[in-house]
Nucleic acid binder design. Structure first.
Lengths: 337, 337
DNA sequence: CTGAAAGCGCTTACAG
DNA sequence: CTGAAAGCGCTTACAG
């Protein structure tokens, strides 16, 4: 494997010049740069990442931290971030947290130190010590899903979006409106988005003069089966809603299928609004609050790249627009009950 | 940030000893090791990956190469591999190929050289030059989805599994059995699994004395919408099948919904068998050939870890079992037509 | 079982 | 615009 000395020799310059030329720094004569590039090309030379990093250069690697790789939302965001970073020549180190232990291992163990030029954190509500750990990395950090003041961030307005979704149900004449939420409040730290979606729901209900009853809420754990179980529970509760706002499309799909199993038809017998704009929503004929998912990964990555290139210190915050897409799963109240 | 010299000083030994003690090599007195570990712990010391790698050590990083992060199958495999690798203390560098260009960039550009201790390649049929590029890395390689002779591999028996799925339809009395396949043969290199699934289909048809007609096949591109369109095409073809074997569950979901739109009922009017064992299959009441997906990632990672720890050269090949799960989407022929 | 020293392949002031 | 040289923080023979 050719090293920088081979290139220097072939181009008839010093290794210092090779280093500068290859990284596009100025203060290199154009003719010299060309000669170096040619020599490097002929030798099939690539910079050794480890040596470069050690000598004070960059690793051209960015950490992406996700709570769950297997969830649709995260897969989309990762894809968006990955494409953007790859385009810019960065590699991506993926850390899947999973449980509290994995989370602790990553943040408290300096696992990222000296490994990455920047970090992208997805939808994790960060504890104070975790924010501190990320800051100690001393690299740009961008967060998807919330706006910690120390870092850049990308998100949607979950409160407003949820309020809009629930208002749609209210406008259709529904009064007993249920909520299928993600995680129990006491079970781990809820995602910011989850907290906000519940606030949006409550706010819309209050504005509409409607009661938020405990019986109208069920937990769906952000999974398909969880959503199905939550709907089943709502159907057998003391107060059965005529419409339900579901905090994610995956849970909504489960809810839809639970309805079908119960012999009920979405829209006809029960209105359902989802959240996300999952690719299956159209086929499932689900009314849903569409958020730009892949785009959030793209923008978060762009924040990082901007900080890396201009060594900007100023965190950037971007809020992306959402849109309620109406489909057959929502209809005016009154057909039943 | 404390470095190895700080630890050496604090423990009262040389850096060579610190290095050995920390990596668990033998030839270090137990008492010394304890002293070193304690010093490292007190200082919050972590080995610099770049320095370690450069000095001839390992990077404790493994490359995972996937064609598409966003597809359910790959997300599951990644999750399985990630958990296994993380458990063993390895980091994961994720490369999402996407298109031919991205693929070329990774393989021909030595992108992986000197970066990783091993590589895990998912479901990519490798060209000769790509196999050569991976071999040139000189690290263990494990492949999911096929058995290139040079590397370790994990897979299922796609031919046999597909044959079984189609035989099920034949046993139900179906004679015109359609196929919804992934990618057109002339469009890029098809996955090994796709080729094999078609072979299994043809083989079962031949064994059953049934004709494989071009009109009975439609392309679904391995996507939801593609599957829906493929089913729609089959329904409006000259020869309409009474049952269809679909090469992936995601396409099968699309097919199911296309059926519903056409006013037909799965099982009743048209039998559908999927492939994968997607988490939504149960809720969609889809008969499907279940393969252990996450487990393939786990096993492929284990092959790598075994090679890394024992410096085994011998590639290992594992074939995992599949199982046909019967549900409402398949029923005896004869209800219609 | 332990240490002194060379070396891994770069980058970066510092000079010129 | 270019080069000589130090140094990044480890690991690894080689000695003892």
């Amino acid at each position: 494997m050719a090293d920088i000395n081979d290139v220097a020799r072939r181009a008839g310059v010093s290794t210092a010049t090779v280093s500068r030329a290859l990284r596009g720094l100025d203060r290199v004569a154009e003719a010299t740069r060309l000669r170096v590039l040619e020599a490097a090309d002929e030798l099939g030379y690539t910079i050794s990442p480890a040596a470069s990093r050690l000598a004070g250069g960059k690793s051209r690697t960015i950490a992406v931290v996700v709570p769950f790789v297997t969830r649709w939302f995260f897969g989309q965001v990762i894809a968006g971030a990955e494409a953007t970073l790859r385009e810019a020549g960065y590699d991506m180190l993926l850390y899947n947290l999973g449980d509290a232990e994995g989370r602790n291992r990553l943040f408290s163990g300096n696992r990222l130190r000296d490994r990455v030029d920047a970090a992208l954190v997805l939808s994790l509500p960060l504890e104070g010590s975790e924010v501190a750990a990320l800051q100690a990395l001393n690299v740009p950090v961008s967060v998807v899903g919330s706006f910690p003041s120390a870092f850049s961030g990308v998100r949607i307005d979950d409160v407003e979006a949820s309020r809009t979704a629930v208002q749609h149900l209210i406008h259709l004449g529904h009064e007993k409106i249920g909520l299928i939420s993600g995680v129990p409040v006491d079970e781990g730290i809820p995602f910011t988005s989850q907290v906000d979606r519940r606030i949006g729901y409550s706010s819309a209900m209050a504005n509409g003069g409607l009661d938020v009853l405990p019986d109208l809420e069920a937990i769906g754990h952000f999974t398909l089966n969880g959503g199905a179980q939550a709907m089943t529970r709502l159907l057998s509760g003391r107060i059965v809603p005529s419409a339900v706002f579901v905090e994610s499309d995956e849970m909504a799909f489960g809810a839809l299928l639970a309805l079908r199993r119960a012999g009920m038809r979405a829209g006809e017998d029960m209105s359902v609004v989802g959240f996300d704009g999952h690719e299956m929503a159209e086929l499932m004929d689900l009314t849903t609050m569409v958020q730009p998912v892949r785009q959030q990964g793209v923008v978060a990555a762009q924040h990082l790249l901007a900080a890396l290139e201009n060594s900007t210190t100023e965190p950037q915050h971007t809020t992306l627009a959402t849109e309620l897409i109406l489909r057959g799963s929502t209809a005016p109240n009154g057909r039943r009950q």
